[in-house]
Design a protein around this nucleic acid. Structure first.
Lengths: 187, 187
DNA sequence: CAGTGTTTCTAGCATCGCTAGGATTGCTAG
DNA sequence: CTAGCAATCCTAGCGATGCTAGAAACACTG
């Protein structure tokens, strides 16, 4: 029954191609440009094929892309752990800057993904853990969970407002330094 | 030529009704539910009338609603000025919680509005000024502008992540207190 | 009352996400 | 080898979206 295996493999490969195509297109032209028709054309199949892979339709595809993003973010944060709060903060901001559409899918759009719940996917907990790991040592008497959430919120706010041209571009580095200074110091 | 005046007044009134209807509908069912057809039905006119008021279409209507939001936010922040950093932070969060759709229009959607530029509308500068006013006294040697931007980003991050169920609902108050503690203390 | 200019509506275009039903393909059993 | 079955895929279409052109209705002027 190796044929069956091959068919299964082909299927998963095609599913991967769908997500990859969606990510590339979103990064190039934004998620609004990611239409089911364009996706179907990119993978050289017809639209209904998308729904056989992702019954949830476009939202499910975005969620799948977001999950990939969480895995990559977790890896980036883990790699930057030695840099402490400053290192992780820098890695987080760099990730958001390098893959803005993916970051949107993860945090702004796609509210389907369960956060901070029992059924939260592991990769998402890992990514969050990358933040906790560097905040925990400097939390002192402060609740590490709350402090991490606020630290994360500050980074997220900086990123989203900066992207929407809400903040002066000149002080970008200063702002990040300030966040690190206010949250990275042991209390 | 009072008739001409009356016609002008009717027109502006109708334009106001469009924005009000959009706001109500958005607050009740989200901006996705705000379609040009439903808006037209609400004001009891046909669709093209919307475009005579807002040539930019739906985006322009959202921008107009956002502008109203900035005026209301500015008023709320000004009223809370006596409360210091904690008071203003609380007013900001309360505003976002009371009018979530409006907040989205102001900061998440509608990237047409010019921020931090020369042609930034006055009400937007006023709203931002409401933040600066309480941060400036506690800035110390720190650049007040940068500190305000970071303070604002932290609030904005808290709000958007919390709304997307990204944060644990139990610690909402704690998080706000923590932001105030880290940014409201004189350095 | 006729003419003129403005205002408004009807109807339609292109596109969107999504789906039903038939056509095509590949596998299996006789 | 072939007939039948099952899985796979595509064509065609639905309802809805933002937006617009051209016709119809309106209000005002001479």
């Amino acid at each position: 029954m190796t044929q069956r295996q091959r068919r299964v493999r082909d299927r998963t490969e095609r599913g991967q191609r769908i997500v990859s195509a969606a990510r590339e297109l979103a990064e190039a032209e934004g998620w609004d440009a990611v239409t089911t028709r364009r996706l179907a054309a990119l993978i050289e199949y017809s639209q209904p094929v998308l729904y056989s892979h992702f019954p949830g339709g476009k939202d499910a595809i975005m969620a799948a892309a977001a999950l990939e993003g969480f895995a990559e973010l977790a890896a980036a944060l883990t790699a930057a752990r030695d840099g402490g709060v400053a290192g992780v903060a820098g890695a987080y901001v760099e990730f958001a800057g390098a893959k803005p559409a993916l970051y949107d899918a993860m945090f702004t759009l796609a509210s389907e993904l369960p956060f901070a719940q029992d059924d939260t996917p592991e990769v998402m907990q890992e990514a969050y853990g990358g933040l906790v790991a560097v905040i925990e040592p400097v939390a002192g008497t402060q609740d590490a969970g709350v402090l991490t959430e606020v630290f994360w919120s500050a980074l997220h706010g900086l990123i989203t407002l900066d992207r929407g041209h809400r903040l002066s571009p000149a002080h970008r580095a200063e702002r990040l330094d300030l966040v690190v200074a206010r949250f990275g110091a042991r209390t």
